[in-house]
Design a protein around this nucleic acid. Structure first.
Lengths: 136, 136
DNA sequence: ATATGTTAGTCTCAAAAAGAGACCAGCACT
DNA sequence: AGTGCTGGTCTCTTTTTGAGACTAACATAT
């Protein structure tokens, strides 16, 4: 009776724990997806896909992000290899953020998802309206 | 001097606040992206793209998710129109979750992103290793 | 000389989200 | 009567996020 589940489990194994067979922390796909699926990553990737930006420019471009989360999200994107951070020794010093090759590569599929969202947000909003009307 | 920023702002406007020009809550793309970019949504979409599952099956399939988050994530996916929830009046009653057409449509681009992650997690992990080594 | 603004952040504290695990009702089987 | 299965909910703790004050070093304006 557990046969079904065991079979399906093997199919999700790649996603869940990877070939290492370890625990979830080692799951490659979850590991990568989570890095880009937080609140601000996709927005900043979208901005930087346009052209490089400086810290203050990004802050003005995305006024809803707190300075703390902008710092942290850029830091995380840089750590994952998507974003390059270059300091120019001007007075006061300026810092420019740009996409790396890896970042541009990742932005391809991410952009597909963003485009889907643009096209289908109407359907999603409608679904929510219906759902909320029914279950109050 | 703000010219640059104003120009770029208009390009991101679709992503930021949508054509409605309202505040961020009305931004269509962020609204949709955030619904699927939480910790468990992509994992459950991956599972349900395979075939419909019952609540308990999903719980066993993804043992790291808490029951509370499984309930909540499925509820949210259902509200957004990606997942259909069907109750069978057996004893004890069983509940089957399956993807809707909208869900399958969204899973297309999401799957592209997941595949990118599978292919490139090595590069990401390497980038992290280098980054951590440098900045300690 | 003194006030003000700019740069890219950090620090602290409050609020929101997520996770762990106990608990529930209804029924079947033993 | 006891055990187990179903699909959840409730409460508590920990983690994550957000709001906003604060910093240092220099430029410009007064």
């Amino acid at each position: 009776m557990d046969g079904k589940i065991v079979n399906l489990r093997s199919k999700l194994e790649i996603y869940k724990a990877g070939s290492g067979g370890g625990n979830l922390a080692d799951c490659p796909v979850r590991d990568v997806i989570q890095g880009i699926s937080n609140k601000w990553s996709s927005l900043l990737m979208e901005a930087l896909a346009e052209k490089p930006y400086r810290f203050g420019e990004l802050r003005r471009l995305v006024p809803d992000i707190s300075q703390r989360m902008l710092t942290q999200t850029l830091h995380d994107l840089q750590r994952d290899g998507y974003v390059h951070r270059q300091v120019f020794p001007t007075k006061p010093p300026s810092v420019e953020y740009s996409l790396t090759d890896l970042g541009r590569s990742m932005f391809g599929p991410l952009h597909q998802l963003i485009q889907w969202a643009e096209l289908n947000h109407g359907a999603v909003r409608e679904a929510r309206k219906v759902f909320d009307a029914v279950e109050g």
